[in-house]
Design a protein around this nucleic acid. Sequence first.
DNA 1: TGTACATCAGTGAACGCGCGTTCACTGATGTAC
DNA 2: TGTACATCAGTGAACGCGCGTTCACTGATGTAC
Lengths: 237, 237
Amino acid sequence: MNAGRTARERARAELTQEITEAARRQLAESGAGALSLRAVARELGMVSSALYRYFPSRDDLLTALITAAYDAMGEAAEHAARGGGTPARRWAATYAAVRDWARGHPHEYALIYGSPVPGYQAPPSTIVPAIRVPLALLAVVREAYAAGSLQVTGGTPELPLTPALTEQVRAVAESVAPELPPAVLNRLLVAWTQLFGMLSFELFGQLVGSVDPSDEFFTHTAAEMARFVGLSPETPF
Amino acid sequence: MNAGRTARERARAELTQEITEAARRQLAESGAGALSLRAVARELGMVSSALYRYFPSRDDLLTALITAAYDAMGEAAEHAARGGGTPARRWAATYAAVRDWARGHPHEYALIYGSPVPGYQAPPSTIVPAIRVPLALLAVVREAYAAGSLQVTGGTPELPLTPALTEQVRAVAESVAPELPPAVLNRLLVAWTQLFGMLSFELFGQLVGSVDPSDEFFTHTAAEMARFVGLSPETPF
DNA sequence: TGTACATCAGTGAACGCGCGTTCACTGATGTAC
DNA sequence: TGTACATCAGTGAACGCGCGTTCACTGATGTAC
């Protein structure tokens, strides 16, 4: 029987959760600058050394936060990508979901897409949550491709990939979308980097004085990028 | 005569320069985490309080660094944009110059394009240096447009801007390129955000496991984006 | 050219602060017989 | 079911560290007459 063991373990699991939550809250409210083991302990009414029962070091707490942030954004993206309508519509919805999450959680966004935290090295376990957003976009493209509605060169005459780039992109495709032509996956990578460049510029204040507020710019660019990767606005799914 | 005044003032100017340089060096070598008034003073063999004769606070030193970083990158971009060849070639050269600078100065890049520094608010004086890169790209496009070699919709069928977006973009155009159609400037904004999204992803480690190293991807995307804004690869300038 | 005074650069000590981490400890929870 | 022991959570004090900023000061550089 593990009822006894469970009591202690349940408490442990709960408190681990509470610590992560408090840290997330502090990150969300005051930014990475205010995030520290001691501050988290203070918020929970514990002594700072007690946290070491749950996280062996500050970096492990950071990893938990980073993972949680990627997962939250990834989930929002996946949910939107699974929504209804044409592929172009779902593509745009995914863009919007990512932006909404980012604007709602600017400090968490900065933690994962801003400057690397000094002295911190993200462990490999963060890779899987980190690619949920691009995989959600990829899923939309794959379904359009499977349905035969994808315009492989996105309406633009072909600009051929070099052999080396083709090889690199093919290696990526192998593990995530073997059926997709490299040119398509390459364009998806371009769109992916554009999306987060646009978002970072908006959130980090780089757009002040140009397209700010950037709702219109964002929506239009989402549509433009949908077509760039080959999702034609006219094609119903 | 101001020889006397000059002696003191020259010393002052020199030391101000030395402080900025030491700070820049420390930022470049150890990142923003290691940057502090005290560390800079230490490197110069001064006592930390002495720096207050030159910078009223840490934030003013930060501003000097941010301005210097923007200017260095902007100068590299402008130089490349003024180079020879077709507009598409100069466009690509500008992309390459920006990337080279960023890779050569990752911590300075992170300072200006990464997460905002906690508690720091950039003063308006940083705007002018901050837009040197996009203005360099814009200059290339403007010349192509003036020469009549610009394909206004970049080879793709038109995706019309909404009235609100047109208005916003036109307002930007007014101050930097009144003759350019909003659609063109809008695409330039897309390219601009893509460029820095791609760069940040490369430098901040987001591309690990996909197109990394990203030389090929970067070069190809530069060409693709040149066409996206309407610079046809075939058109000599 | 010389003297009296004002300006300024740099010193050194101190302020109050917060940080991550270690360590010996108390007391509660769980386990084995 | 009851007792003896082991495990674990949380405490509180302390470690050594670095930070930005203030302040009264010394001594050098510059200025006015």
